[in-house]
Design a protein around this nucleic acid. Structure first.
Length: 479
RNA sequence: CGGGACGUGGCGCAGCCUGGUAGCGCACCUGCUUUGGGAGCAGGGGGUCGCGAGUUCGAAUCUCGCCGUCCCGACCA
């Protein structure tokens, strides 16, 4: 662990991000271009995200299954828009067992094709619907410009794939996932405030009728898509010839959805909460919510270590994730810095001085404050403190987003704001792709989302062309 | 694919201009002393200098080719 200070966020955010990811032991680049090794500490954060998402996916009525990594190229090509959208980034296996394959096998960039090719066999009548399934998987997309945790050529995710009898039901599914699964986890577990909305046509998933997404704002003013939920209509069922017998006895196509969230969320946690001292983890995803640092001298070593182990055991039985950092050979100051870099929400210092007073010293990572807490009250106090940190981190992130959200009056004002990646810009939009393209061309910012909870006023005019507004759009530079 | 930078122990770098067989900081190992905000001293281990060819008595250093990485754009969760 280097003692060199991190780059400052305000001076070089990309350098800060890269060093935090590496020095906090979240992940590192592998020998394969753009692919990452997720290290144990980073994987533990992903596991917490998985647990929380999985619980909600199941609570909303879904089951997990698993499809193969390899998809015949012809199957992948069966849905025109999908293959058109993904073709440039699909990796192909052309050789196996020492022989050239008759048909190349695509490494899935997403699994709609493979799954819809199978769903044909899984439904006969409306009585078989809905199909509410999800899988945890890895996918490969040969991105031109990878960025660790945010855009890697292989990443982990979950992808849900459902089939419904009616359009209303499918649309309701897409929104249930958006709100009850994704927004709930991202806001209440990761403490990242999100905008919920629809994507413009140009930002839609290939093959989707409508794409809904969560958009979060990072501390450098750029947006990150945190999760997506797609209403696919009947396109995939048609392309794969999937029909069921309806209530009227006639064959019909089901209505489809798909939705996903990825390891990118770990990068989002870093960029939303991290500060110049390193990572700050919300307690709900922190691998260790409390780190105990014993402070020993030769003459009190045994006593202090025994007391620390006892405290650790007590906190664990209270359901707190605890790490007792009893490593020899590192002094307390070193450990304080390291756990601040790694974002542990709470630190408990236990030394002879504390024990003599029947108390310990508790420091919180988000604010840096230190207090003395009696040993008798420690477990209860830490539970309260962890809950408070979780709330405070969300509130701080929300305040940051509000501060970085502009409502520009004029087009020029908006372009200037977007060019410097100052944050979200909310403005009325006519719905014309030409206006969207012009903003992108002049600022490189895109429409991140058309918020679900906002409608333009009757008098609102498009910020770009002045025509009557069809929706409110939120623009930003994005990762 | 376009623009820029860079490849030297695990990480960060110097050495290259002016060729002579590799060095610094951190990390690592051993020992002793330390331990309430990144410990000190002593000793030690680890590098075909990205790859290939060429020039030369001799190449990390000069020449040519290739490969790779990072940053900025287009693609994108």
């Amino acid at each position: 662990m280097s003692a060199a200070p991190l780059p400052l966020q305000s001076q070089d955010f990309p350098a800060w991000y890269g060093q935090v990811v590496r020095r906090a032991d979240l992940a590192e680049n592998s020998v394969v271009r753009g692919a990452m090794v997720i290290k144990p500490y980073g994987y533990a954060i992903w596991e917490a995200i998985q647990r929380e998402l999985d619980a909600r996916i199941k609570a909303t009525g879904h089951e997990n299954f698993y499809f193969p990594l390899l998809v015949p190229a012809s199957v992948l090509a069966q849905e025109g828009e999908l293959i058109e959208g993904f073709a440039p980034e699909v990796a192909m296996v052309t050789e196996a067992g020492g022989k050239k394959l008759d048909e190349p096998l695509a490494v899935r960039p997403t699994s709609e094709a493979a799954i819809w090719a199978a769903y044909d066999r899984w439904m006969e009548s409306y009585r078989d619907l809905p199909l509410l399934y999800n899988q945890w998987a890895n996918v490969v997309r040969w991105e031109l410009r990878p960025r660790i945790l945010l855009r890697t050529s292989e990443f982990l995710w979950q992808e849900g794939h459902t089939a419904h009898e009616t359009e209303d039901e499918a649309v309701a599914e897409v929104l249930t996932i958006l709100h009850e699964v994704y927004a709930d986890v991202v806001e209440n577990v990761l403490a990242i405030p999100v905008l919920r909305g629809r994507k413009s046509a140009s930002e839609r998933f290939p093959g989707a009728v409508d794409t809904y997404a969560l958009e979060a704002l990072m501390r450098d003013g750029k947006a990150l898509q945190a999760a997506t939920s797609h209403y696919l209509g009947q396109g995939f069922p048609r392309a794969f010839g999937v029909t069921f017998t309806g209530r009227d006895g006639r064959p019909q196509h089901p209505y489809a959805t798909s939705w996903g969230a990825t390891t990118r969320l770990v990068g989002g946690v870093v960029m939303v909460h991290g500060d110049d001292a390193g990572l700050r983890l919300p307690p709900a995803v922190a691998p260790y919510q409390v780190v105990i640092v014993p402070i020993v001298r030769d003459d009190d070593r045994a006593e202090v270590l025994a007391a620390s182990a006892a405290v650790a055991a007590e906190l664990r039985s209270a359901g707190i994730r605890v790490r007792l950092d009893d490593r020899d050979g590192h002094r307390p100051g070193f450990k304080f810095h390291e756990w601040e870099l790694k974002g542990a929400p709470c630190r408990v210092e236990i030394g002879a001085r504390d024990l003599a007073a029947g108390a310990v010293t508790v420091a919180r990572r988000d604010t840096g404050t230190r207090t003395t807490v009696s040993l008798a009250a420690l477990a209860g106090e830490l539970e309260r403190l962890l809950a408070d940190i979780q709330r405070a981190m969300f509130a701080a992130a929300l305040a940051g987003r509000v501060r970085r959200t502009a409502r520009p009056e004029t087009y020029d004002e908006m372009i200037a704001y977007l060019r410097e990646a100052a944050g979200f810009a909310r403005a009325a939009w006519c719905g014309d792709a030409a206006c969207e393209a012009r903003v992108k061309h002049e600022s490189s910012a895109t429409i991140r989302v058309l918020p679900l909870d906002e409608r333009p006023a009757a008098s609102d005019r498009c910020v770009c062309c002045g025509a009557a507004a069809r929706s409110v759009a939120v623009w930003a530079q994005a990762y």
